[in-house]
């Protein structure tokens, strides 16, 4: 079969090994249905609880992986919380804000001490502030999606990454995040979906865990109790 492409040869080889021909007809339809109506397989008990408990679990799990969390009563308090965090950690009051409409619409002007740029992250940006798509309680994981208002570099390049999350965005399990995502982006996922669980780390030198390998050294969540 000298004219067969590598693709066709690989597929033919698979079918030969499995002792059958290409899957067609009813069987193909059944597999397509499995893909199109995907259902969770098993959701751990710990993720299935009332929403207020999910939020509590989210915070507990996030703190367990060295994410820090501060809580505010309303979105209007976010700039204050961001400024406080930077001061507490002796970080420069300069930040790169995700160009997301909702986030940039918060009352940043009230915090005169902050120098704010918007856009994607560039070297040497030290601090970024981004919104989130969801928080997953079972492991304290943030779910961030890329888009015009949420460039991925903000999640990765600066040493300090701050994420603004509403309590109402917290879900129980990864699968709940997928459900939300399929609804928000029907037909095509965003270019990048980041599940982020704590700040960057490595254990590559004698298995000692060190923060800030290539991604952020600090991950801070400002949680709005909405």
């Amino acid at each position: 079969m000298p004219d067969m492409s590598s693709r066709d040869q690989i597929l033919a080889g698979i079918r030969r090994s499995l002792g059958r021909t290409k899957i067609e007809g009813e069987q193909a339809e059944a597999l397509t249905r499995r893909l199109e109506n995907s259902q969770p397989n098993l959701i751990p008990q710990r993720a299935q609880r009332p929403h207020a408990d999910q939020v509590r679990l989210f915070v507990e799990m996030a703190e367990g992986v060295q994410t820090t969390v501060s809580r505010v009563a309303s979105a209007a308090d976010v700039p204050e919380a961001v400024a406080d965090y930077l001061k507490q950690h002796n970080l420069p009051a300069e930040l790169r804000l995700a160009p997301d409409e909702w986030l940039t619409g918060l009352p940043w002007a009230r915090k005169k001490t902050l120098t704010i740029k918007t856009g994607r992250a560039e070297e040497p940006d030290a601090v970024s502030v981004t919104p989130a798509f969801a928080g997953v309680a079972e492991t304290g994981t943030l779910m961030l999606t890329s888009g015009p208002g949420t460039p991925t570099t903000l999640n990765l390049l600066p040493e300090t990454h701050m994420v603004v999350l509403k309590a109402s965005q917290v879900v129980g399990a990864y699968e709940d995040g997928w459900k939300k995502l399929r609804e928000a982006y029907p037909g095509q996922l965003p270019r990048t979906v980041n599940y982020i669980t704590g700040p960057s780390r490595t254990g590559d030198i004698e298995q000692k865990i060190l923060m800030g390998a290539h991604g952020p050294r600090r991950l801070h969540i400002v949680l709005i109790d909405d």
Partner: peptide, 23 residues
């Protein structure tokens, strides 16, 4: 590694979209 979840689990779907600022 005995972690409950690794730090970064990242899903890439195609190249950057026309309006995206990076990727």
């Amino acid at each position: 590694t005995g972690q409950e979840m690794s730090v970064y689990t990242t899903f890439s779907t195609g190249p950057k979209r026309p309006e995206d600022l990076d990727g």
